[in-house]
């Protein structure tokens, strides 16, 4: 009934999730810096790849850090 012991935990989802978002973040960030710049005519002259790349790097870092420290805290 209430609070039955969870039998086991699967692997930590934060790792693949943080990894994927981190890959996207880096890819978009560097494409934003080194890629063509005329494509931003569409997007109101905002280099949205660079900005959004950074956002995703931050989100990814948050997941990876919490996975890393969460595991250390358990030990």
């Amino acid at each position: 009934m209430e609070n039955t012991e969870p039998r086991r935990h699967f692997f930590d989802l934060k790792i693949p999730l943080g990894g994927l978002l981190g890959f996207y973040g880096l890819l978009l960030f560097f494409y934003g810096i080194f890629g063509p710049s005329d494509i931003y005519d569409k997007s109101a002259n905002i280099d949205v790849n660079e900005i959004w790349g950074l956002v995703m790097i931050v989100v990814s870092a948050a997941f990876l850090f919490s996975a890393f420290f969460g595991r250390r805290a358990k030990k």
Partner: peptide, 11 residues
């Protein structure tokens, strides 16, 4: 199609 440049478009 109108507002997203490649890169973010793929996302």
């Amino acid at each position: 199609a109108h507002y997203l440049p490649n890169g973010i478009l793929g996302l």
